[in-house]
Design a protein around this nucleic acid. Structure first.
Lengths: 258, 258
DNA sequence: GAAGAACATTCCATATGGTGGAACCTAGCA
DNA sequence: TGCTAGGTTCCACCATATGGAATGTTCTTC
């Protein structure tokens, strides 16, 4: 390989492969899946076990991810650490709601999805990390905006163009200001088909130690399945609780990065 | 190298090295720390970035752990996943108490420490993952035992030898039964210098969906700093809350493995 | 308990891919 | 603009990664 890293890439991809088997996996299955001979896999696994990236159960002889992965995860900082901390809470929320749940952060004047658990239902919201949303037409954006420090919020609002995406989109600054006031009172934001027809969501802010928002938790669903009032009644408290739990654990990892 | 994995071990150790720099690190510092030439580190980093194990900030050019680590951490199962989920909660508990906190699980007839955050104080409890404790003379052991399914608890009690370690150790089965009844009522267990003079602790069980214990959260401290009644009053509720939070998030990851 | 099959581990000749010094490029600062 | 520090690319060569074959281990069946 021109790159000089064939062995390394093979080993790293083997870690990823082991990770796809939460119940453990045999050397021979790994070899078959990777299309490599057993001695090659064996040697790579030896290095992986030696460094703790994988481990081998002494009884079942199956390989699984090793303690080094969790140790590394706990060393992560910033947004990635927030994802690690938030993941179990998001998983619980997804289980409670049976809808798609999102973790989001502010990036410049947009919201970016940082983690996402897509519902199992036939009709469900899709999404994936990296997707960007307009701040004024997303529940995540409004939840964050409402709980930013006033100076930060003011800076963003000054630059914001309120593009009208649907007939429901808030496209006047006075209306947005009223909406943000309401979000602050309620502690959560809604999106009632404001970005995309047929899509509703509720989102609650994740707050740092000073009470300033640095992210949001969102539950999104098809409008056909949830009237707005029922979503507010049923899903908003769950989103708020999840955001509160994440805030309690992650306050130290946050910080506005606008 | 006789082992056929020099390049692989170097790359994996480089991940570990990057992990020790939560604020990011330069290529040249990594090279200096590892005692390897820059082109070697550069090539290894290229493979690590390509597979997501590390990433490079486009602005600062610093390397940090990448999204693959958190993705893998979220794929872990069993005890390792419990550690990942519990870590932020343990960190909060450590911060609330300024004492050493432990995550523990039952392994056969003993308690094993699975994670540990050691306090900063001059006089503090030490500990590290892997340390084993007698089940009858540790708050973790008693907390778990009291909330096991009766059949499981009975099996363990039938085999248990109540070694007397200090003058406070419970060394009669009738006394232990009474103590376990009390633990069940209170929802937490204590260790009042029962395993080691000068050491007190409180522990609360981590329960699975069926209400059966599969682990425990413990706060331990020097007896010189905490009278037992004050520990019960101040630290027990915090341990209980932490165990409750972990239980709520991790119920799916538990399961007795006695 | 013995035999067979499946799986894991070790061996080793060899070719190929990892290595690192040198050269070159880029970015930041005075 | 020139200099320095840091990062990236190049490439000859030899050290190491490779994988087929042999050997060892474990499990299952009779």
């Amino acid at each position: 390989m021109a790159d000089g890293s064939q062995a390394v890439v093979r080993a790293l991809e083997l870690v990823i492969q082991v990770g796809a088997h939460p119940d453990g996996v045999r050397l021979s299955d790994l070899a078959a899946e990777a299309g490599l001979p057993a001695p090659t896999i064996h040697r790579l696994l030896r290095a992986l076990v030696e460094t703790g990236f994988t481990q081998q159960d002494p009884v079942t002889k199956l390989y699984a991810l090793g303690p080094r992965i969790s140790a590394l995860a706990n060393q992560m900082a910033g947004g990635e650490r927030l994802k690690v901390v938030s993941r179990p809470i998001l998983e619980r929320l997804a289980s409670q709601t049976n809808e798609t749940v999102f973790l989001a952060a502010l990036d410049s004047d947009e919201v970016v999805i940082t983690d996402c658990i897509v519902a199992d239902a036939t009709l469900r919201l899709g999404g994936r990390p990296g997707v960007r949303l307009p701040i004024h037409a997303s529940s995540q954006g409004k939840a964050i905006l409402a709980f930013l420090r006033p100076a930060d919020a003011g800076r963003i609002l000054a630059r914001l163009t309120l593009r009208k995406l649907t007939r429901n989109t808030i496209d006047r600054m006075e209306d947005l200001a009223v909406e943000l006031g309401r979000v602050r009172e309620l502690g959560f934001a809604v999106n009632d088909q404001e970005r995309e027809p047929g899509v509703r969501s509720v989102a609650a802010p994740i707050l740092d130690a000073s009470g300033s928002a640095f992210g949001a938790v969102c539950v999104g669903a098809p409008a056909s399945r949830w009237r707005m009032d029922r979503m507010i009644e049923r899903l908003a408290p769950l989103a708020k609780a999840a955001a509160g739990d994440i805030s309690a654990l992650a306050a130290r990892y946050g910080g506005s990065e606008t």
